[in-house]
Simulated scan of single mutants.
Amino acid sequence: MANSLLTGATGGIGTFIARKLHDRGDNLFLLGRDGAALEALAKEFPGTEVLVADVGNPAELAGKLAHRLPARLDALVHCAGAVELGPVAELGPDVWQTMLTVNLAGPAELTRLALPALRAAAGHVVLVNSGAGLAAHAGWSAYAASKFGLRALADALRAEEHGNGVRVTSVYPGRTATAMQEKVHAQEGADYEPKEWIQPESVATAVLAALDLPRDAEVTDLTVRPGLR
């Protein structure tokens, strides 16, 4: 039975990924800072282990996760993230630090801690990135910079761990109907209609397709865009 560690499981995309992983029989390890929310979600998935830790505080992860990670880890799915928009002229260092810490430094540290278990299982790291990790637009500088960095992390990790049998996939969803997207629309001053965007289950399906690819191949980069209506 596979062991899968997931961040952001209480978010829109993460919940669907957790459900799909559980439905196929994986042992789930759900990591997040809101223990109560994770425990509530875990009740839907018998056998799930909750790991209370904050990727926004990467220096604390090693202590929080000491002796809590499995010896073998088949999948590490990074789905947690944060977004703040604004022009460069108005973004202070606190916003930049939050974006770079939550979206980049936290995933990097969690991956480092999980690497021995990933190597033992010839596992798979999936980083749920963003279309903003491929192109930066006005008002998106800090968020896009963190996602460009996440792409660089994935590319370097893939090159470093290929010989250890660890696969690495970056997934770049377009606008997806989640609470984060609702926040983005509010920051943009635009009306939000969830039906106009990718549904989170569709992104979860793409993630599982990458994870389930036979071992003779590897999906390195997967872009998911809104379909025709």
Results as ranks from 00 to 15, higher is better:
Leu73Ile: 04
Val171Trp: 01
His185Ser: 14
Val128Asp: 00
Ala89Trp: 11
His67Asp: 15
Gly92Lys: 11
Gln97Met: 11
Leu110Phe: 07
Val126Gln: 08
Arg175Leu: 09
Met99Thr: 04
Ser170Pro: 11
Val224His: 09
Ala136Met: 15
Arg33Tyr: 11
Leu127Val: 12
Lys64Phe: 10
Val125Gly: 06
Thr98Pro: 07
Ala66Thr: 13
Glu201Arg: 12
Ala108Ser: 14
Gly106Phe: 06
Val184Tyr: 03
Thr10Val: 03
Leu100Val: 15
Thr10Pro: 02
Leu153Cys: 10
Thr111Tyr: 08
Val77Ile: 15
Ala37Asn: 04
Ala82His: 13
Glu182His: 07
Met1Val: 03
Ala9Met: 01
Leu104Asp: 04
Val203Met: 03
Glu60Gly: 05
Glu196Val: 02
Asn164Tyr: 06
Ala190Glu: 15
Val50Glu: 02
Leu104Phe: 07
Ala9Asn: 01
Thr15Phe: 00
His137Phe: 14
Val55Ala: 04
Ser141His: 09
Arg215Met: 11
Asp34Glu: 07
Val203Phe: 02
Gly174Pro: 03
Asp74His: 12
Ala59Ser: 14
Gly47His: 11
Asn103Cys: 10
Phe16Arg: 14
Leu150Phe: 04
Met1Tyr: 01
Arg19Glu: 13
Val88Cys: 11
Gly81Gln: 07
Arg158Val: 05
Leu118Gln: 14
Tyr192Ser: 07
Ile17Leu: 08
Asp155Trp: 11
Ala179Val: 04
Gly133Thr: 07
Ile13Tyr: 00
Phe45Leu: 00
Pro200Trp: 02
Val219Gln: 12
Gly32Thr: 01
His78Pro: 10
Ala108Tyr: 13
Arg68Ala: 12
Gln97Tyr: 09
Val128Met: 01
Arg151Lys: 15
Asp212Pro: 04
Glu160Tyr: 05
Ala108Leu: 14
Asp94Arg: 13
Gly189Leu: 08
Met1Gly: 07
Ala120Cys: 05
Val184Cys: 05
Phe16Ile: 00
Gly8Leu: 00
Arg225Tyr: 07
Ala120Thr: 05
Gly133Ser: 06
Gln181Trp: 02
Arg151Asn: 12
Trp197Met: 12
Leu65Lys: 09
Gly133Cys: 07
Pro226Thr: 02
Gly165Trp: 03
Thr48Lys: 04
Asn103Glu: 14
Thr10Gln: 02
